[in-house]
Design a protein around this nucleic acid. Structure first.
Lengths: 261, 261
DNA sequence: CGACACATTGACATTCATCAACTTGGGTGG
DNA sequence: CCACCCAAGTTGATGAATGTCAATGTGTCG
């Protein structure tokens, strides 16, 4: 089903009931497809519907007067482009497909009905917006206070964590169909410098990045370099699960571990 | 009354009714005071109440493993520290007073009651969160793609616009009790470089900045340097009002102007 | 009068941008 | 099927923006 990524992600941050899943699936009925580099929503658009990425990647971006571009968010399957934006009057930035994309258009009325009928889902959707906000803060840290290597490392850690949430990872590997120019526009550097930075990460054996896939070869070292701490993604008990996985301990052990830290 | 700034700001972004104003005033009953450099909320705190700045300035900040600080938002009177954060589990960043501060603690139940009774206010409060998000995106652009002079210029334009919204400006002048070190941590540069950058703006006659006050001497030039466009603040018809003020035209003229652009 | 925080200045180091060339790989038309 | 083409990646040389270090001013407060 088309909404898999959204449901996977929602389940990672809140407790979904069976009927919640049914309601979420109904969001994905009206699917549109677009080609690469095509605006899904343009700056200044008045929102008539909410858009949900089903397949492919997109980016929020702003163009400066001198023509430079800054990407302020990457959108992968399961991400909303403009959830809650109807509360404002118009888009203050654009959203562009970075690959061929499929996205659902959810009309405002049916979204309104859903949140009215199901306050629990309304809260879960608000949580998505707040997590987006936390991600934005981390991006400010990335471009403001981390050098190129740290910023790329942190970005890759974040994208991997989000890909895991969306269920589009395969073990340590995930699709990452982004050019170095796009990665540069996200981290506030130039494509040339992005190239050199990525090569350094490769040579240090931390990642593999080729033919549209990213593989994390040394997660601990990459996270340490980027200063990555997943707590800002507000996953449901994820740190404990992760600790369990690494230590090979049981859930009851984990609760003790958590209360000690 | 203590809530003046909030009401002024809410009125700038949505249509407040008389009873809305009454309800908002009731938020400011439980006021706390704190000294400079004191955390209002710390990273990891579980939200028990929502905090609203009444007087003084504060900042959202993140400390990196190597001790560097990145400020991700400035909070002035009328700004909420953690509106809607209760939807998440804990603060993923801290908020520190940059001056002596007075802030209201609004307990979650009374906020809940208010939004239940008054859906219009609930929407207006959600709008605040979305505007915060838009500001975060602009900060990413600031640190990512603007040089130091452009970034400081844009920041000053934003702060002035927000001070106008909060009603704490006096003509072209506003309180700005921030050290150069703080401004540097917000724009991703060093204090030394912030000093030189600010001096350049002064020597070019764009601003005056002394004894805790910022005066915009040449708004047009400052806005052009920073590439500032206030639309991301989603003010209620502000561009038209501003155009009226400058051109000395009437409201009916303004609507024609607006439809032409 | 210190003591202190903050602002300012100068000299030098580093990161990153810029410019320009070249390589590589996948697609496409003859 | 091959030749070409183009986007994307890679490399090297050089310059500009910014960081770092260290010293000196300047105003406020006790």
């Amino acid at each position: 089903m088309a909404c898999t990524a959204l449901i996977h992600k929602m389940d990672a941050i809140s407790d979904l009931r069976a009927d919640d899943v049914v309601r979420l699936r109904q969001l994905c009925l009206n699917v549109t497809r677009t080609t690469r580099f095509c605006d899904i929503i343009s700056q200044g658009d008045r929102p008539l519907a909410v858009h949900l990425i089903i397949d492919g990647w997109a980016a929020r971006y702003t163009i400066l007067p001198d023509g430079q571009r800054q990407i302020t968010a990457f959108l992968m399957p399961g991400d909303f482009c403009d959830l809650h934006i109807p509360i404002l009057r118009e888009m203050d930035h654009g959203i562009m497909a970075l690959t061929k994309c499929a996205y659902a258009c959810v009309d405002l009325d049916s979204l309104q009905d859903l949140t009215t009928d199901n306050p629990g889902l309304a809260v879960a959707l608000s949580r998505l917006t707040l997590i987006d906000e936390a991600i934005l803060r981390q991006w400010i840290v990335n471009v403001g206070r981390r050098d190129a290597g740290q910023a790329i490392a942190h970005l890759f850690c974040e994208l991997k964590a989000r890909a895991d949430m969306a269920g589009i990872s395969h073990g340590p590997s995930m699709p990452l169909p982004l050019t170095q120019e796009v990665l540069a526009d996200a981290t506030g550097i130039t494509p040339v410098h992005a190239n050199r930075t990525i090569q350094a990460l490769r040579h240090q054996g931390m990642i593999r990045l080729e033919s549209g896939r990213l593989t994390i070869l040394d997660r601990d070292r990459l996270q340490q370099l980027g200063g990555f701490d997943a707590s800002y993604l507000h996953l449901k008990a994820a740190p404990i699960k992760a600790a369990m996985g690494r230590a090979g301990i049981t859930a009851s052990d984990a609760s003790r571990v958590a209360s000690q830290s």
